[in-house]
Write a protein that binds this DNA or RNA. Sequence first.
DNA 1: CAGGTTCAGTGATAGCCTCTAACTAATTCT
DNA 2: AGAATTAGTTAGAGGCTATCACTGAACCTG
Lengths: 222, 222
Amino acid sequence: MAQADGGTPRERYRAQVREEVKRHAREQIATAGASALSLNAIAKQMGLSGPALYRYYAGRDELITELVRDAYRSLADVLAVGAEGGADLPALAHALRRWALADPQRYFLIYGTPVPGYHAPPDTTAISAEIMTILLDACAAALADRPAREPAPTALAAHLADHRDWAFGNPAPPEALHLFLTLWTRLHGVLSLELAGHFTGMGFDPARLYEAEVADLTTPRG
Amino acid sequence: MAQADGGTPRERYRAQVREEVKRHAREQIATAGASALSLNAIAKQMGLSGPALYRYYAGRDELITELVRDAYRSLADVLAVGAEGGADLPALAHALRRWALADPQRYFLIYGTPVPGYHAPPDTTAISAEIMTILLDACAAALADRPAREPAPTALAAHLADHRDWAFGNPAPPEALHLFLTLWTRLHGVLSLELAGHFTGMGFDPARLYEAEVADLTTPRG
DNA sequence: CAGGTTCAGTGATAGCCTCTAACTAATTCT
DNA sequence: AGAATTAGTTAGAGGCTATCACTGAACCTG
């Protein structure tokens, strides 16, 4: 993993160590949450002494930012592969759920509690836009497949038609914008509460709730 | 605030200091997030020296737990007052949104990224159940007001009918259980993404999206 | 291959933090 | 008034982030 050889041996070594640091970091985050991530502890686990890691990462923040970037990248890739393979909206929704369940803390790295000061670097938000584009396109495609029998555009769709800056140049119709936002927020709603454990002990199967939301999303209203 | 006089002067003083500690803690959390909360910093702000606060809170965790409890209590009270006043589902939904927007980090204290190890104490989960009961009752009432013309109970409702342990003794019909879960997850979906800032720069008005979800929730499907 | 440069890794240190322990001083109770 | 309780103190252990100055190895170049 991590393209085997990049250039000079030193560069390769650097990349290798950076990768190993991230491996430990991911493990630490998965078991104790992002706030418990400690450069010091990682260094010790790798048999290094504290400050050594500062050769590889400028600080804790940079490491976390890189993990956030990786998380975005990973999700974008999963969805892109699905979309290329002709996956429809429900298939993408389930790919998202599988991805989230595989590593809940990775999901929260992206969609969890924000740190008030923090602003994601531009390249990260670019990947976020990539993700939204994939889902938005899928929404537009889903609507195109539907028997066009909605003479009453929703009020929200009209509002979105006037404020579509975020769908940078995407030719999706207003209804698709509406569908996308609804998809995003509803899936996130179920997923984040499930991953946060708010359903544990309730007895029911969250997968069914998710399934019901997906079904509702892909069934035109009467 | 904080019932003026409790008993011995010492007890009153204790309660007063505990309250002041929480005040500073809330402020700190609101501006820098829960992970940045520091007992030491609070002590200095209060003109005390570090360890003094350990007379009032066993540690950082206990303080945070109390803030979580207060947050639950505050939300439960807001909703209870609304429900007593005869508020319907949309009114409760808007009360929830107002409460969340008033202090986003307080919302995340409850519904944000979980700390893997942490388990909320029983009294806290009891308040959570209180909140769910209010909303569930409102859902049942909303359904009762609807023209009863749904011969096809949803598959999810059937599943929930078999797994209704969590609605401890609540006589709500399965459809109400379904509606409640949908309400909860959808509202949380919009709210948490909005509060986390994922809509900033998108140009549209999150309130309209929220409004659309509320409307959808309270309109029977055809 | 010799010599200079670059860079990984080190220990020391400053400055935060949580939390414990021992002590002082004020308050309250009897 | 004397005894018991308790608020607050300093000191300190151990953790963390991060900087700095240094050593020693790897690398490149003439």
